[in-house]
Amino acid sequence: MSGPQSVGSPRTLTRTGPVIPSSLLAMVALVLTEIMLFAALISSFLIVKADASIWPPLGQPRLPVIVTAVNTGFLLGSGFMFFLANRRFRVGDFPASRKLMGMAVFLGGVFVAVQGYEWSKLLGFGLTVTSSIYGSFFYLIIGFHALHAVGALVAMLHLFLTFGPQGQSASRFLGTQVFWYFVVGIWPILYYLVYLS
């Protein structure tokens, strides 16, 4: 594969046989940045919350704790399905892997749908981006997470739809998986901070 004929083809670049696939490394680097972004949002939220005398502010609706707890279960379940899909993928059992992928996409979709429904309710109750700093932070942090979830779901759906009998490009599978773990993994922290405390 080496030589000037295959110029630019990424496969020629890994002549030394990378110990960590490029897509995985790149995704880990991206996730690192994203974690810092969320850490900053969380820090800002905590500081503003500490500043406030009453939290949540008066006249603002309370967040649906129970429904979101159930919804958290859906998201974690989706992450677990992806984990199982990966295990099947590794041993080459592609049909089973594809089925589990589909489950992961479905559960993730349920999570986003329930979130959207909650938002529409909350907007109706008068919690908007500008109604208070409470609402601003809610829509900023949770909305940012939802944005990541939707982006990851689109990638997962694409992965699912292009899943052939020969499986899938392993590097894409790995990259999407790491990103989804990030989206799933950061959610309980956000749920605890924004909904519970």
Partner: peptide, 8 residues
């Protein structure tokens, strides 16, 4: 590692 907070 440092750009995330500024983007936020």
């Amino acid at each position: 590692c440092s750009v995330g907070p500024l983007l936020a």
